[in-house]
């Protein structure tokens, strides 16, 4: 789908946050269930998008944010898009995010040899 452009977005957002401080080892991302983004494809796309940047070789860790929906009429929460109680539409409370949560980096010029992990 569009995992490559998503991966590029992760790389540029990460770069703006590290501001040249070192090499990134881990990127933690939370993917909303409703975004249809595939974690495996994203990891592959990330490998490509990070080449030649301080994120090259970093591990992309993903977790899923479960969908949470609430009926706009009766307030009942559920997972379907039509309220099972009253048939009204449901609004989305969670599950549409693509959250760059945190970065773990090794500071310095990036020649991390024998960094002990």
């Amino acid at each position: 789908m569009h995992e490559l452009s998503v991966a590029q977005g992760i790389v540029s957002a990460a770069l703006s946050h590290i501001k040249g401080r070192g090499k990134v080892r881990e990127v933690h991302v939370a993917i909303g269930e409703l975004t249809h983004i595939n974690a495996e494809q994203l990891a592959f796309a990330f490998e490509i998008a990070s080449r030649g940047t301080p994120l090259e070789g970093a591990m992309l860790e993903t977790r899923v944010i479960e969908a949470r929906l609430r009926c706009i009429s009766c307030g009942r929460e559920g997972k379907s898009f039509t309220c099972e109680e009253c048939g009204s539409a449901m609004e989305v409370l969670a599950g549409e995010e693509l959250l760059l949560e945190r970065l773990k980096l090794v500071e310095g010029d990036g020649d991390a040899q024998g960094s002990g992990d």
């Binding site: 998503v6 977005g9 992760i10 957002a13 990460a14 946050h17 590290i18 401080r21 070192g22 080892r25 909303g32 975004t35 549409e96 995010e97 693509l98 959250l99 760059l100 949560e101 945190r102 970065l103 773990k104 980096l105 090794v106 500071e107 310095g108 991390a112 960094s115």
Partner: peptide, 17 residues
């Protein structure tokens, strides 16, 4: 020695759109 740092970001990349 190299220092390992953690940066908390919490940025929704879809929010930009």
């Amino acid at each position: 020695m190299h220092k390992v740092a953690e940066i908390e970001v919490q940025e929704d990349l879809l929010a930009a759109n």
